[in-house]
Design a protein around this nucleic acid. Structure first.
Lengths: 227, 227
DNA sequence: AATGCTTAGATTGTCGACAATCTAAGCGTT
DNA sequence: AACGCTTAGATTGTCGACAATCTAAGCATT
């Protein structure tokens, strides 16, 4: 059993109140996980019968998906799921490098001592799981690690941009390109060094290491692509 | 007459096709410029009569405003214009520093020689305008400068995050705090050095200078705040 | 055969009405 | 007087229908 931080759980437990909320979350899940394929058209009438809600609800959900760049909408024409391209992936990781680098810097400044010690113990748990070969939870652990640092930045704009926006697109790329648990061992060392920098309150180093970590990750994924 | 780049014009000329488009742009303008005050409630029925469109149109416009963090919506309660706080401003500028720094780095890599030379001539025009005391156009020139670099990054994600999201909030802060044309002379020198780094294709330096430029700008605005 | 116009079908955009939920005023109880 | 419950009013959420727009098939022309 992996340890998922309460902070993270709080954010993951996106309480869907309205029907539009639930439809949005469901559609986002289906798109990210490839149930609805990239570049496919999202017909409002079709989806409204499929999810048994009115077109207005579907429209609102699609608009939100458009806001986080998972679909592209054209006036009087309709919405399509974004298509995954090599250039798009590179650009996405450039943004991620920039934002998560800043997040690591701010985390080194703003995380409480307790949060940092929690982060350290998470890393230990993560380490033991990797040892015992639970590669599935390994990815959850990786996500949890990054989420904690992002939340640790205490910067609401940053958190929203990454968790509501960028991250779902990243996950879509990872899922659909079949990159579930890449670079297990080296990534772990990188995580360790980042946490060390944060523990030392070394903002500069934390940012730099996080940026390199994401850069490596990008190169790794890129090398597995041919097109 | 200030020179506005064609690239910028293209992005500014947001062609509003549907009624929801126009309403969104109008509402955004009114919020950014303070016609609708921070923290005020956005009643759907009230706005629908005021702008003479249906509630559905208003709802879509408000949802888009919510997506770019100009309003906050609560389920079954309604939407309010965001309130401007010192902490919010600082966090916003941290994001801006991160993203625009990356934009400058990528601009140094991806701008064409022609675009760079255009940027240089813009800077000259800008300089002469400052000399003749046209402080109004000075700000437009500043915006144009930053826009060109952002567009020069050629990174669609980055461009969208900054121009559709962050920038309108920044403008809202600047307008409502009465900071129209701050730091004329020093900012110009900073712009000059950034362009120089881009001309030399020095990615590292371009990013660093842009980050410091925005950091200075933040400190300058912050010093003018008391609350 | 290729091109351009016309039209039928389907899709999106907009609207007004009804249902579900929240808010605040009024009443009663302690 | 303070607190909690009930209820009326207003606001948001959802729905189905109509209007505006796009798309593609079919026909006419060159």
């Amino acid at each position: 059993m992996p340890v998922i931080s309460p902070l993270l759980n709080e954010y993951i437990e996106e309480q869907a109140i309205t029907s539009a909320d639930k439809t949005f979350l469901q559609l986002r899940k289906d798109i990210v996980e490839g149930v609805i394929l990239p570049s496919s058209k999202l017909s409002e009438t079709e989806l409204s019968t499929k999810y048994t809600v009115s077109r207005a609800v579907i429209r609102e959900a699609i608009n939100r998906l458009s806001a986080c760049h998972l679909v592209e909408r054209k006036a009087n024409v309709g919405a399509r799921v974004v298509s995954l391209t090599r250039a798009g992936l590179i650009q996405l990781y450039q943004v991620r490098e920039s934002l998560e680098g800043m997040a690591a810097r701010l985390a080194a400044k703003n995380m409480s001592d307790e949060e940092i010690s929690d982060l350290n113990s998470l890393l230990n748990t993560h380490f033991h799981e990797v040892q015992s070969g639970e590669s599935y939870y390994q990815e959850a652990g990786d996500v949890d690690f990054h989420y904690r640092i992002i939340l640790g930045s205490k910067n609401h704009h940053l958190i929203s941009l990454l968790l509501d926006g960028t991250y779902h697109l990243v996950r879509m790329y990872r899922v659909q390109l079949g990159m579930s648990g890449p670079r297990v061992t080296t990534a772990f060392d990188e995580h360790k060094h980042i946490v060390q920098a944060i523990s030392n309150r070394d903002e500069e180093l934390a940012e730099m290491l996080m940026r390199r970590h994401i850069l490596y990750s990008k190169n790794n994924i890129e090398s597995k692509l041919s097109n």
